[in-house]
Amino acid sequence: MRRQLYEWIDKRTKLSKYWDSIAKHPVPPHVSDGVRTNPVYCLGGIAFLCFIILVVTGMFLAMYYKPTPDEAYDSIRYIMEEVPMGAFIRSVHHWAANMMVAAVMLHMIRVYFTGAYKPPRELNWVIGVLLFLLTTAFGFTGYLLPWDQLAYWATTIGIQINSGIPIVGSYIGKLLMGGNEIGPNTLSRFYAIHTIVLPITLTLLLGIHFILVRIHGISGRYL
């Protein structure tokens, strides 16, 4: 029965042809010798796990959240007080987000000090910096959504700083706010950026990031 199922799937996907190159590559001894695994090589994976947790919890939050100034705050309070497990799901989203930023930063520091950005890996470093900036953009847009005092004023400061960039700043500010002040347009576009634009962009870049890691393999010994 198992054998038949395997053959049925394999005939249609030819998975066995690709399996070895996907999964059977060796991990070098300085990453894991079979007894001890160097934890600094897990940071990228930890960031990815956080992202998966964020996608799943984000889907649940999106089912209750309402991106308008009149309803946003009350919908979060509803999630926190009425929805079964709502407070827990939102808190997991909150902590996974902080953990993801920390893991991405530490991953970047690891890649820098192990020299893992050197040829032929330059392009993957550039994609990595983009992924880091996208991660912080996730944080920035997500911060406004609860529409409480902290959300509103932290975003005000953030937009002021972005507007201070010479030449393009005032356009960035207008683009972020959807007008000349923080209001309904700002909230709905932050929600769209947070739940549609950034997840699609990040997933595509993450795919390229992983494929390039598979092509290059893990970088050499740093000590």
Binding site: P69, Y73, I76, R77, M80, A87, F88, R90, S91, H93, H94, W95, P146, W147, D148, Q149, L150, A151, Y152, I182
Partner: peptide
């Protein structure tokens, strides 16, 4: 440490 929610935004 659950995620916090302060008073509603007041411009």
């Amino acid at each position: 440490f659950p995620a916090s929610l302060l008073e509603p935004a007041n411009p």
